[in-house]
């Protein structure tokens, strides 16, 4: 094909098979030889920690990741991945971006560092899957857990010891004793990538309803692509966001009820309320760091306020 792109996702091969590959294959098929995107999985060409830099340099043309995992040097980085209690459902994410102005903030922030923000989409909620059961906040103390950087910063106050490892090494690390659990995904991902085979318990309380992730491209590479292919790329990436909406929504419910590998546990609601309370403190802490961050936190507050007032089915309490 005359135009060839390398896209590296932060997801490993087993998960990428669902969350990325179908959209890329569709794009390549419709582009019919005018352009081809080659897909690479987590750490395949460059380690995730160098992903942003590699895209800026043009070693990689496009990236699928949350801002947090690839450590974008932007003001919005902490909000990618799982910002504690920012959303309850996966539909919250596109609403926040398209109706509440996050899209514009993200585009501006990334333009400053020479990167094109193509679109944002939601993934799964963030739950713990552990080797030992978690039934109270006390059970979290001293657990070495693989989680997102910002989530880790938040969870550390409850005694969790956040550990960073390459994504592909998690299953092995759980088996070799490097990790006690993960706070990284919903139950669908636990089953899909094999983590359910090496953990025993799934905590139904979650610290976020949906992961925020994006497609990005090197700005120069993006400019070189003809308009109709840009439009096609946008459509296919939207399709990828849509695929995840139903794949996770259905998968989460089904595997909780019918999944044979993980036993469900819960922390009582009143105890969990302290975690939600701490999240609000955490929001204020982040908002104090800069004007842009304050703006984003303001939007989260406004949105959650509207949802709470709207009542059922948006919020039940």
């Amino acid at each position: 094909a005359p135009i060839k792109w390398r896209l590296q996702t932060y997801a490993g091969a087993a998960l990428g098979e669902h969350v990325t590959k179908p959209a890329i294959e569709k794009f390549n098929k419709i582009a019919a030889g005018q352009m081809e995107i080659e897909l690479y999985f987590a750490d395949q060409l460059v380690p995730t920690s160098e992903l942003f830099r590699a895209m800026q340099n043009g070693t990689i043309d496009a990236v699928q990741s949350d801002d947090d995992s690839m450590q974008s040097p932007t003001e919005v980085t902490v909000f990618g991945g799982y910002f504690p209690f920012a959303s309850r459902y996966s539909l919250d994410v596109p609403v926040l971006f398209n109706q509440y102005g996050l899209k514009q903030i993200w585009e501006e922030e990334y333009a400053k560092v020479g990167v094109k923000h193509i679109s944002a989409g939601a993934w799964d909620p963030c739950h713990f899957a552990t080797k030992d059961p978690v039934r109270s906040l006390k059970d979290l103390e001293g657990k070495r857990v693989f989680t997102f950087p910002t989530a880790g910063r938040f969870l550390a106050q409850f005694g969790v010891v956040p550990v960073q490892l390459p994504w592909e090494d998690i299953q092995v690390a759980l088996q070799t004793g490097e990790l006690d659990g993960i706070a990284w995904s919903g139950i669908t991902e636990d089953y899909t990538v094999g983590w359910a085979d090496v953990t025993k318990y799934f905590l139904t309380n979650n610290i976020s309803g949906a992961w925020i992730g994006h497609f990005f491209a090197n700005q120069d590479r993006w400019n070189e692509v003809p308009d109709h292919l840009k439009a096609l790329m946008e459509v296919c990436f939207e399709q990828s966001h849509y695929y995840r909406q139903w794949w996770y929504w259905g998968g989460e419910a089904d595997l909780r009820v019918n999944g044979p590998k993980l036993e469900l546990t819960s922390i009582p609601d009143d105890e969990w309320a302290t975690v939600e309370g701490k999240a609000r403190d955490f929001w204020d802490e982040i908002a104090a760091e800069s004007e842009t961050k304050a703006k984003v936190v303001e939007i989260f507050k406004k949105y959650n306020d509207v949802m709470a007032k709207a009542g059922r089915p948006y919020r039940y309490s």
């Binding site: 995992s69 450590q71 040097p73 950087p149 550390a156 010891v161 956040p162 550990v163 960073q164």
Partner: peptide, 13 residues
């Protein structure tokens, strides 16, 4: 140079 420019830190706690 990039690490200096953006004050790059590791992703851990």
């Amino acid at each position: 140079i990039y690490a200096f420019e953006v004050g790059e830190r590791s992703r851990t706690v």
